[in-house]
């Protein structure tokens, strides 16, 4: 798989292996439906304060859930433009609007977090760079986590270039 910035200034992935293209398409699925156990990580507790936790559950978490759904719908729309190559250009390609980068980062992150929880993938397994094991569902899950991390890294680099390294250069908004 190749990654570059297109002539339009958008992140462009090309020569994507069909297996990876299939994995990418899974992020359009609602993680709450796909990972009934793992999705609890997506709405963590804000702390120990009872009043705060109650407010969070009633007001903030439904808002966050809507936010995640909205971001995922942007990604799902982009994925309809995933194209299969022919002849001398085998593999799949996907150009992502540069303004959709945040939606992709959030959606990929949600799926990575939920996958890790759902399959109880350990920190050691995440750190190991061993050959992927396709023989079982858990091995495929770990491969998805690592593949989505690679896509995230590409998108972060693309956004860094867009920002020209100027993002948040001021310290004016520091905490007290």
């Amino acid at each position: 798989m190749y990654f570059e910035i297109s002539k339009k200034g958008n992140p462009l992935f090309s020569k994507i292996h069909p297996l990876l293209a299939g994995m990418l398409q899974t992020v359009a699925v609602d993680p709450w439906e796909r990972f009934p156990d793992g999705s609890s990580r997506l709405l963590p507790s804000p702390g120990d304060d009872e009043e705060l936790c109650a407010d969070w559950e009633d007001i903030v978490q439904p808002e966050l859930r809507r936010h995640f759904d909205l971001e995922r719908s942007v990604v799902a729309e982009d994925l309809t433009r995933l194209k299969s190559g022919k002849g001398k250009n085998p593999g799949w390609s996907l150009e992502i609007e540069s303004t959709h980068g945040n939606a992709w980062l959030t959606t990929l992150n949600a799926h990575r977090l939920a996958l890790v929880d759902e399959y109880s993938i350990t920190e050691q397994e995440l750190a190991e760079k061993s050959e992927p094991d396709f023989s079982n569902e858990r091995g495929l899950a770990l491969m998805q986590v690592n593949f989505f991390a690679f896509v995230q890294e590409c998108l972060i680099r693309a956004q860094d270039e867009d920002d020209g390294g100027q993002l948040g250069e001021s310290d004016d908004a520091e905490g007290h």
Partner: peptide, 18 residues
């Protein structure tokens, strides 16, 4: 153990303007 270090740093810059 899941969130990428580059991602966390980018979010800090965005949210706090650092």
């Amino acid at each position: 153990p899941v969130n990428l270090m580059s991602y966390v740093a980018m979010i800090f810059r965005r949210v706090f303007g650092w």
